[in-house]
Every structure is written in structure tokens, then in C-alpha cells.
Write a protein that binds this DNA or RNA. Structure first.
Length: 635
DNA sequence: CATCCTTTGAAGTCG
DNA sequence: CGACTTCAAAGGATG
């Protein structure tokens, strides 16, 4: 480790997190001692990081300096081992396949560092990859084929655990990529970019002989830009232009090498390690920049694929066009001019959670058969908390890279720009101003077990009353529900909690398919209570009143994953702390969780809770809680 | 059709 | 410096 941080070089995550993990440095050593395999990866990773950092330094020293040590490092705490093990044992549910099926790549990414010459990987690293690679374990026929495929030196990286989830949806085939030359596909594991994890590679995707159905059939409704068929898993980070067909819809896809650009060949990933944008990369990037943002000489990439972050006023312009035609024109013209004048809207880089959401949304949708984003997001939020630090670290790193890249791409850009744009344009929704009192109230209760937990669905039930009573009985709705706000009824009323879960909860939380999760709502008179009680423990509770999102602070500080913390705190609360007492500072988050009734049970062993991933729920746990962190007693 | 909802995190503004 | 606000994605729901 030392390198991971490189003295703070790698700034994975949010500062908060970094801070929280700060004192965990020594643990790295420990880890290194104990976790050989991991260590190998870590080493590789760290080395990569260093490289990237080094490179980066050239381009952006200041940033690197100011950034705190990588969260990843911090993540290596003592608990991790246990967590990992637990995770392994418990995988079950949400993420089918390996404990964190999608995450096996976690470490791999670094291996892909462009900076590593082919074959530069240490045997260890390779070994690790193989061991870790989910596909290999699962050994799907396709994956094997892929492996065998001479053309793909190491298809393994291509194969993702996720493939299992969406079989038959292979849109892209590795071969195709290769053959088509559209994308310089890199087959070597080490070529896999760290960000690759976001790409849910599926065997099917790359199965030879699995020609992409129709690469161009799909058109992005919003952008109107044709895009290649997408895998549910694969959330295209950005819309691809027609020319991008065959590209892997990576979240960072826009950066994905196009048309076999030499520079990127060998890189599956756009960011050659984002950390470092070398000269060639620079040129590449620059090519994609909007002229105004980029040094003058730049223009869109030859592919014509705009940077994902750039939202051209196309849509608006179009509308304006029509308007112009219909309406008067001076005004419109001027408007139009303004718009034109207006630079394309450059979006904020996605943060870690957003990246995670992008990646996982499809899965959740598939599992839960939910479509409502609000509900899905709740689930994702829980899952996010359920993730191990390492897993989260992956996303933090991605986010960091994303930010860096964004920074490089749009040197002058500031989030403020978007603020202003919206304000001026008034387009954006005026953020709901929550009534202080109102909002807080909800939030405070929010923590209610019912809500908090997986069944959180309750939480998710902003429309609880609606769901329960239906539109016909709006008179029965609680005020907030009428206002489309969070339902307070269930929050406060415990009894109701139970019921709702079944209704919405089931939808949200329980993956239909998974038997384990499916469980027993009925059977569990006990289970239900259990879950409810446990729920408070759930990680999710974010203090409502504390918009602050720093749940990790404590977590980090206390290593235990978020859930555990919550649990602890809850238990403490249960012990008799008054909510207020618990409230201060760090505990603020938890405060929310305190709810009458929520209590006691909470106890679930924190650790267990922390370890548990939703899926691994105990059979008793109510089915609807797959997502929840509820725990299964691991023992 | 615009906005809400919902999540976390980053970054902005404000006092 | 802390508290608060906006925005990023997403898509159904709502007015």
C-alpha cells in the first residue's frame, strides 16, 4: 500500500470519506499481511494508481495534492476481511452469483492500466484475476468459448457476472468489436480499465457468433440519437452516436475509443486511467470538447460523438425552431441566438453514487420489476450502503476519475455554470422548498424501521397513502401524500408499516425471482416484526434533517460499514438514549432512525448487519427485503 | 409538458 | 466554517 495513497495521491472519494478513513492507515499493513490475494491486487492497483497519479501529476498536480488519500486505501480495514468473507458466504441475493457479482472486477481495473505494457502484469495479478473473475467461476459455456477464442487473449475480463442476469440480451459481441474495428477492443485483462467495472460485461455480449442484433435500431428518445441496443445492465453512460455503434455502452462510454483510434487501442476504456491524460489522450479529449471549452483548436471528435456531459440544446433548439416557425420571430430569433450563444449545457460529472445507480438500475428494475425511479433509487441507496467499502471505493474512484476527466475536458467549467443556467432559464424545477417544519418532521420519523429498511419500500412510498387508498380515497391520505411528499402515516404509525411492505415493499425489495428473498412474508409473523425491527438498523437512514450526506463519516471512522454503524447507534438508541441525545454530530444521521418501536430489536448484531447484503437475508427475514441490509444472522 | 419523487455525493452559495 | 441548496440520472406519477 503505500502507493495506494501515494501520500494521498489517489483521491478516491469524497473528502468526508477520506477523512473518516484517515486513521486507518495501519490497517493496510495488516491487510497486506493477511490478504495476500487482495494484496496482490492492491499492489497492482496501487502501482497503477501511482502510475496514473504520476502521470497525472504532470497534468494536474495541484489536484492530486490536495486530494486526500484514496478511499480505497482506507477501506482496507480490519473488518474488511470479515466482511468479505461474510459477503462471500452470503451472497445470495441481490447480486446473484458471486458475493458481489458485479464487483469482482473491482481490482481488476487497475490492471488495465494502459500504462502497463501488455504482459506487464505480474503473474499474481493475473492469477488473481482469474480467481476472481466471476465468469470463470460460473464457467458459462460462452465464457469458456471466449476464453478459448484466440482472438481474445483474455476474454475473461469481458465476461461479467451480470451476464447471468440478462441472458439473451447480448447486444454486442466482442467479436464484433474486434472484427468491426469499430472499437479497439482490448482483450487483455490488464487492459481493462478500472472503470470497466461499470460495464457489465456479459458473456453474451461478447459471445462470438452472437452478432449484435441490430446495432442501430434504438434511438434515444431524449436525444434522438440512435444508439446501440443496450443491455439492461449496461447503462450507457452517455448516448452514443450512430457512429458509435458497436461501442460498449460503458458509462463512460463517451470516452471509449472510437473507430480504432490508435491512441486508445488496447484500451477498453476511455480513461486510460483517467488519472492521467497523456498527450495523446489529451488530443483525443480535446477533440471531443466543445470548442468553447477546449482550447480553440478542438472540435468534436471525428466520430462526432459529443461528450456525454455536454447536453446540446438540441432539443430545445428544435423546439425553439418550431416555435420560431410558428411564432414571432424576433423574439424567437433573439432567443435562438441566445441559445446558440449559450454553450452547450455541460453536465456535472456523476458522483460515485450516480455511477452506481447507472450501473445497477437496470438490475434493480429487472429484479424488482419496478420502474419508478424514485423507488428504485431508494433501493439503490440502500444497496449502496450495503456495499462494502471496497465496492464503494470502486465507484468513488470512478467518480473521481470522472471528475478529473471532466475537469480536463472542461477546464473552465464550474457547477455554478449550471446553476446559473437554470436560474436564468428557469427551466429547472425550482427545488421543492421543503417546509422546514414539515420536512423535518418526516425526516425525523423517517427513520422508522419500516421506512428505513428494505422494506423501505415504505420509505419509498412517498405515495404510500396513494398506494394504499388509491386515488379514490384521497381523503384518507395524509397531508404529505396529498402534496406528493413522503408519507408520514406509515412512518408514524407502526402498524401500517407491516402492511405496506407487502404491497409496495414486495415490489421494491424483493426480487421476484430470488427464492430466498421471496420468502415468506406471510409465514413470518415473526419475520415481519423482525424485519421491521431490524430495519431501523438499516443503513439507510440518512438523517433527513441532515441533508448531509455523510453517512460515511461515521462509517468510515468506525470502519464498519454503514449499516453496522447504524445498527450500533440504533442499539444505543434503543438502549435508552433519547433521540436528542443521540443526535449530536456524528450521530445525527442515526437520529432519524430512532423511532418509537423501532428499537429494540435492532440489535441485530451490528456486524452481521453490516455484513449482510440484502440478498443474504435470512430466510426469516421477510422476503420483501432483499434489498435491505437486514440481516441475517451470520453465524 | 414541467415538475415531483428519490437516492448520494460534489460543489456551489450564504450567513 | 457550517448549513443549506443545486444538480447530476432516471422514469413513472402528477398537476
Amino acid at each position: 500500500m503505500p502507493q495506494l495513497n501515494g501520500g494521498g495521491g489517489d483521491d478516491l472519494g469524497a473528502n468526508d470519506e477520506m477523512i473518516s478513513f484517515k486513521d486507518e492507515g495501519e490497517q493496510e499493513e495488516k491487510i497486506s499481511e493477511n490478504l495476500s490475494a487482495e494484496r496482490d491486487l492492491a499492489d497492482v492497483k496501487s502501482s497503477l494508481v501511482n502510475e496514473s497519479e504520476t502521470n497525472q501529476n504532470s497534468s494536474s498536480d495541484s489536484e492530486a495534492e490536495r486530494r486526500p488519500p484514496p478511499r480505497s486505501e482506507t477501506f482496507r480495514d480490519k473488518t474488511r476481511e470479515s466482511l468479505e468473507e461474510a459477503a462471500k458466504r452470503q451472497d445470495g441475493g441481490l447480486f446473484k452469483s458471486p458475493p458481489y457479482p458485479g464487483y469482482p472486477f473491482i481490482m481488476i481495473p487497475d490492471l488495465t492500466s494502459p500504462y502497463l505494457p501488455n504482459g506487464s502484469l505480474s503473474p499474481t495479478a493475473r492469477t488473481y484475476l482469474q480467481m476472481k473473475w466471476p465468469l470463470l467461476d460460473h464457467g458459462s459455456l460462452q465464457s469458456r468459448q471466449a476464453l478459448k477464442d484466440a482472438r481474445s487473449p483474455s476474454p475473461a475480463h469481458i465476461v461479467g457476472p451480470f451476464c447471468l442476469e440478462f441472458p439473451g440480451q447480448s447486444d454486442l459481441s466482442l467479436h464484433q468489436f474486434q472484427l468491426s474495428n469499430k472499437v479497439p477492443v482490448v482483450q487483455h485483462p490488464h487492459h481493462v480499465h478500472p472503470l470497466t467495472p461499470l460495464i457489465t460485461y456479459s458473456n453474451e455480449h461478447f459471445t462470438p457468433g452472437n452478432p449484435p442484433p441490430h446495432l442501430q435500431g434504438d434511438v434515444d428518445p431524449k436525444t434522438g440519437i440512435p444508439r446501440p441496443p443496450q443491455h439492461p445492465d449496461i447503462s450507457p453512460y452517455y448516448p452514443l452516436s450512430p457512429g458509435a455503434v458497436g461501442q460498449i455502452p460503458h458509462p463512460l462510454g463517451w470516452l471509449v475509443p472510437q473507430q480504432g483510434q490508435p491512441v486508445y487501442q488496447g484500451f477498453r476504456h476511455p480513461y486510460p486511467t483517467a488519472l492521467t491524460v497523456n498527450a495523446s489522450m489529451q488530443s483525443f479529449l480535446s477533440s471531443r470538447f466543445p470548442h468553447h471549452m477546449v482550447p480553440p483548436h478542438h472540435s468534436l471528435h471525428q466520430t462526432g460523438i459529443p461528450h456525454p456531459a455536454i447536453v446540446t440544446p438540441n432539443v430545445k433548439q428544435e423546439s425553439s425552431h418550431s416555435d420560431i416557425g410558428l411564432n414571432s420571430s424576433k423574439h424567437q430569433d433573439s432567443k435562438k441566438e441566445d441559445e446558440k450563444k449559450k454553450q452547450p449545457h455541460i453536465k456535472k460529472p456523476l458522483n460515485a453514487f450516480m455511477l452506481y445507480m447507472k450501473e445497477m438500475r437496470a438490475k434493480v428494475v429487472a429484479e424488482c420489476t419496478l420502474k419508478e425511479s424514485a423507488a428504485i433509487n431508494q433501493i439503490l441507496g440502500r444497496r449502496w450502503h450495503a456495499l462494502t467499502r471496497e465496492e464503494q471505493a470502486k465507484y468513488y474512484e470512478l467518480a473521481r476519475k470522472e471528475r478529473q476527466l471532466h475537469m480536463q475536458l472542461y477546464p473552465g467549467w464550474s457547477a455554478r455554470d449550471n446553476y446559473a443556467a437554470n436560474q436564468q432559464g428557469k427551466k429547472k424545477k425550482r427545488k421543492r422548498d421543503k417546509q422546514p417544519g414539515e420536512g423535518n418532521e418526516h425526516r425525523e420519523y423517517f427513520p422508522n424501521p419500516c421506512l428505513s429498511l428494505p422494506p423501505i419500500t415504505d420509505l419509498s412510498a412517498p405515495k404510500k397513502c396513494r398506494a394504499r387508498f388509491g386515488l379514490d380515497q384521497q381523503n384518507n391520505w395524509c397531508g404529505p401524500c396529498r402534496r406528493k411528499k413522503k408519507c408520514i402515516r406509515y412512518i408514524q404509525g407502526e402498524g401500517s408499516c407491516a402492511s405496506p411492505p407487502s404491497s409496495d415493499g414486495s415490489l421494491l425489495d424483493s426480487p421476484p425471482s430470488s427464492p430466498s428473498s421471496v420468502a415468506p412474508s406471510p409465514s413470518s409473523k415473526e419475520s415481519r416484526p423482525q424485519t421491521e425491527q431490524m430495519q431501523p438498523l438499516s443503513l439507510t437512514m440518512k438523517p433527513a434533517h441532515q441533508p448531509l450526506h455523510y453517512p460515511h463519516r461515521h462509517l468510515l471512522a468506525g470502519h464498519p460499514p454503514p449499516p453496522s454503524l447504524v445498527l450500533l447507534e440504533n442499539s444505543a438508541a434503543a438502549a435508552g438514549k433519547t433521540p436528542g441525545a443521540a443526535h449530536n454530530g456524528a450521530h445525527g444521521d442515526v437520529s432519524s432512525s430512532r423511532q418509537p418501536g423501532s428499537s429494540g430489536a435492532a440489535l441485530a448484531r451490528p456486524l452481521a448487519a453490516s455484513l449482510c447484503h440484502s440478498h443474504s437475508l435470512h430466510p426469516n427475514s421477510t422476503a420483501p427485503q432483499p434489498l435491505s441490509l437486514v440481516t441475517k444472522s451470520i453465524e
